[in-house]
Design a protein around this nucleic acid. Structure first.
Length: 440
RNA sequence: GGAGAGAUGGCCGAGUGGUCGAAGGCGCUCCCCUGCUAAGGGAGUAUAGGCUCAAAAAGCUUAUCGAGGGUUCGAAUCCCUCUCUCUCCGCCA
């Protein structure tokens, strides 16, 4: 959410900045509402002041035992007018709030301008894609040939975009998450966190998924049977751990000494993937349910851009330790997410697709989420001040598994286990088709 | 699931219809005293808005005592709904 002051004082600059990311700000609707708000609010507060003064007089008079019928009559006169004004003000402010909640964040000055992902800018790359002396397979073929990856069973259980993993592959998946958590907690100073997978609507409003992106989410209701009344509001399955973790500071004022707060959490993520029908339908790349290790920073505003670089570095470190080639892209204005002021994507090399694919997205949201959440800290002068929030994948576990399978595949159909993961795999150095039995 | 108790400022805690944005204490800030420290004395100490103003300063003003609704000229206080916390019983991983 943007600051309404900024919209009042400098609407042109805001409109221009939003246009860069392809968002058309409803200028005339906003101006009309603002004018209306000003008139009604002044009137309302005026009447409230009158009422308060009169009520106070009544109190005084009564305590002295004087007659109060005259003053009472006076107040009663404009009582209706006040009630009307209050209702009207409430409506106008709700409409303004609705507009505010749907405006995306302003891009930082350093963000490259562009319409879509073709305008993203490569910042650096790391590692050299391996050359294969045999015909390579994609992760689906590899996993199915090993007998450890099964989409048909998953479809029976749930439907499209789910998966079943078994044996060494399931274990490798777990090993990746463990390895990521251990690296971030032991080497990068994060606090490991376990948080709810079901959250309320306030949390999703806080991080920006609601009200605009409800169709991307799954909802859950107690009792199994869907009812739509307000007395039984739904839970939402988290689309990312960013939601519960960032919202831990919602409506809080943290001390200056506590900053920066750095949290890491390994959670499943649930996304409806509405609007991506037909895209990435094969394999583990785009699932309704996937695991992710998420990094969240809550920092002093002066430090948020340093924190962003640090955060990207932490995610990159995982790929370096796994020896997977990647590149870092600065997203352009048109490709950034709703809440982000600046975003780096990390893309990992997938040989079967002969391209780099997103495996992490690291964003500085500045005060955008904090303003929605009223997440603050006490600054150097003791004043409550909005935090800056950042989040990034460190990394998406399913996609990392895909990258390992494809980059570490062997001509005989086996997959070598990256060195750093072997302690998590009971010393195993290779996954083969009979691994399942060996492991049981 | 059943029975009961509760939610007030950074924290503790008083307040059951009127000058209450809220006593008192703790903490914190500033000042005085003291050779230093301890002790003592004094003052201050919520948040978010609106209006006036070019802006700052300042002034005026509104809202907020878990959330929402209601009664009333007036609600922290009375009524209703909800949320959360705690205690006991039952059940459960």
């Amino acid at each position: 959410m943007l600051e309404i002051q900024q919209l009042r004082n400098d609407l042109n600059a805001v409109t221009e900045a939003l246009a860069k990311r392809g968002y058309t700000f409803p200028v005339s609707a906003f101006n009309a509402l603002e004018a209306e708000r000003k008139t009604i609010q002044t009137k309302t507060q005026d009447l409230q002041a009158q009422r308060n003064a009169a009520s106070k007089k009544i109190g005084h008079a009564k305590s002295k035992g004087e007659d109060v019928t005259a003053i009472m009559a006076e107040v009663t006169q404009f009582g209706d007018e006040l009630k009307q004004a209050e209702i009207q003000l409430e409506q106008v402010q709700q409409q303004l709030q609705k507009i505010l909640l749907e405006i995306p964040n302003l891009p930082h000055a350093s963000v490259p301008q562009g319409k879509d992902e073709t305008a993203n800018v490569q910042i650096r790359d790391w590692g050299t894609p391996r050359t294969f002396a045999f015909a390579i397979k994609d992760h689906v073929t590899i996993g199915e040939a090993l007998g450890l990856l099964d989409f048909e069973t998953a479809a029976k259980l749930s439907g499209a975009r789910f998966s079943v993993m078994k044996g060494g592959l399931a274990r490798l998946h777990r090993a990746l998450a463990q390895f990521m958590l251990d690296t971030h907690t032991q080497q990068h100073g994060y606090v490991e966190t376990y948080a709810p997978y079901l959250v309320n609507a306030d949390s999703l409003r806080g991080t920006g998924q609601l009200p605009k992106f409800a169709e991307d989410l799954f909802t859950v209701r107690a009792g199994g049977n869907a009812t739509n009344d307000d007395t039984n509001p739904p839970f939402y399955l988290i689309p990312t751990a960013e939601v519960p973790i960032t919202n831990m500071v919602r409506d809080e004022i943290v001390s200056l000494q506590a900053l920066p707060l750095k949290y890491v959490a390994h959670t499943p993520c649930f996304r409806s993937e509405a609007g991506s029908y037909g895209r990435d339908t094969r394999g583990l790349i785009r699932q309704h349910q996937f695991d992710k290790v998420e990094l969240v920073h809550l920092v002093h505003p002066d430090q948020s851009y340093d924190a962003l670089e640090e955060l990207v570095g932490h995610a990159e470190k995982i790929l370096q330790l796994l020896e997977l080639p990647y590149r870092v892209m600065a997203l352009c204005t048109g490709d950034m997410g709703f809440s982000a002021a600046k975003t780096y994507d990390i893309e990992v090399w997938l040989p079967a697709q002969n391209t780099y694919r997103e495996i992490s997205s690291c964003s500085n949201c500045e005060a955008f989420q904090a303003r929605r959440m009223q997440a603050r800290f006490r600054n150097e002068n003791g004043k409550p001040t909005l935090l800056h929030s950042l989040n990034g994948s460190g990394l998406a576990v399913g996609r990392t598994l895909v990258a390992v399978l494809e980059n570490y595949q062997n001509s005989d159909g086996s997959v070598t286990i990256p060195k750093v993961l072997r302690t998590y795999m009971n010393g195993l150095d290779k996954i083969e088709s009979n691994t399942e039995k060996q492991n049981e």
